[in-house]
Design a binder for these strands. Structure first.
Lengths: 234, 234
DNA sequence: CCAACGACTTGAACGTGTTCAACATGGAGG
DNA sequence: CCTCCATGTTGAACACGTTCAAGTCGTTGG
């Protein structure tokens, strides 16, 4: 059994998350975390290579929570654009409690040199997982859609979500009301764009956009099975 | 005269910029800067509140250079989309020498708590200046365009430029070739979108987008004079 | 029971950004 | 010439993230 080490690791992570929420990331020192957890500073570094890495634990949990919440909320929703909106709104839901220090996190994650960067190869697994839910949202919809667009849409949606995250980070409105409203306003527009993709002129343009995304796409092509939402753990 | 202090300040800034380029931002210590400049550490902090603030000097210069370069390159170009492309490409030009440590800079600038954040009120002046060139690009074009779109376009273009910067930061291709290519590919699409804005269906949609941008717009409305490019200092 | 090994834990020490009380300088007013 | 004050300047000291040589502890093989 791996109980001893795993228990200490979990204890340190829990303590860190709690302090991060209480005081914010910047004002929480490694010494404070160690003291509050009843271990030594060096011990924390035995389990986490850096203060940043402590946050990877938070990130993983956030994403897992989002995946569950989004899958649940997607049930019964067949409209493509609304499905994408659901994915975004459930993210806002699960992320809300951590808004203050999540901002700090996503900032350090923006560093291309950081292993936490969503574009870094170190976090390929996490990124693929976060695109996975977009794939499910797209392929689980009944809305008719240009196949080429469908292929690129998950990545586009993921990029849009990154944009939303950026907006959300700077959103100081109560309960992040403005972020929710932004999603609500964008969803119908996304629906219209998808519908427009049937007209030849727009279709050509959208294909152009899709091509650019494929060429410059940040994520390597991931397999896109005609997914049936499935709540079993991976 | 303010020579003594100003001279020391300039000396420290120059030294810091040189070391940043030589060793990168992270590996350049305040002690090294002070030593290389022949002053004490405390003296550097007398002129710059933090290591980050040292970078504001670089940022101001970069932006001023971009403004000059873009205005020059805009002369004779009347097509709207191409004008926007010119603005983006001249930015890539002037930023290229600083790519390595500029990335570091833009990362810290992404922090909403940082005074360097493009969304922070502390840097309103810098942000307005960087939107200013977009205003000039839009209002100096001969291309016909929906007035409502025209009003929002500078901000949209600025947002697009932020996106390009994000892409550029992660761009490791030689000479940032991929970033240039991305601009080249996006310019014609932008042109088509603008043309589409004449058709009723697309027009309605574009107005919707414009409305959302106005409502959620990060920058307070800036006056938009029918600008004639003018190279006099502000 | 012992020895040895690996997993786990410790806290002092290092390099960093930053602060601060003290000092230097040089010009204005007496 | 002296005093005073603002401006500039200093370097030791602080708090932090991080490293590491040394230690503890439980388990395994003899």
């Amino acid at each position: 059994m791996d109980s001893k080490g795993a228990a200490t690791r979990a204890l340190i992570l829990e303590t860190a998350m709690r302090l991060f929420q209480e005081r914010g990331y910047g004002k929480t020192t490694m010494r404070a975390i160690a003291e509050a957890a009843g271990v030594s500073v060096g011990n924390a570094y035995y389990y986490f290579a850096s203060k940043e890495q402590l946050i990877q634990g938070f990130y993983d949990r956030l994403q897992a929570d989002h995946l569950v919440a989004a899958r649940l909320a997607l049930v019964g929703e067949t409209d493509l654009a609304r499905r994408l909106g659901v994915v975004l709104k459930t993210w806002l839901d699960v992320a809300e409690p951590y808004h203050q220090f999540a901002a700090q996190f996503f900032v350090t994650a923006a560093d291309p040199a950081s292993p936490l960067s969503p574009f870094s190869s170190d976090s390929k697994e996490a990124r693929d997982a976060s695109i996975e839910i977009q794939v499910e949202a797209v392929y689980g919809a009944s809305t008719k859609i240009d196949p080429k667009l469908r292929e690129t849409l998950p990545e586009l949606a993921w990029l849009g979500m990154m944009g939303l995250v950026l907006y959300w980070i700077h959103d100081t409105s109560a309960g992040r009301a403005k972020s929710y409203k932004l999603v609500d306003q964008c969803v119908p527009i996304a629906g219209k764009v998808v519908k427009l993709s049937r007209y030849p002129v727009a279709k050509a343009m959208i294909r152009e956009v899709a091509d650019i995304c494929l060429e410059h796409g940040i994520s390597p092509r991931i397999p896109k099975p005609p997914v049936r939402p499935d709540t079993s753990a991976k």
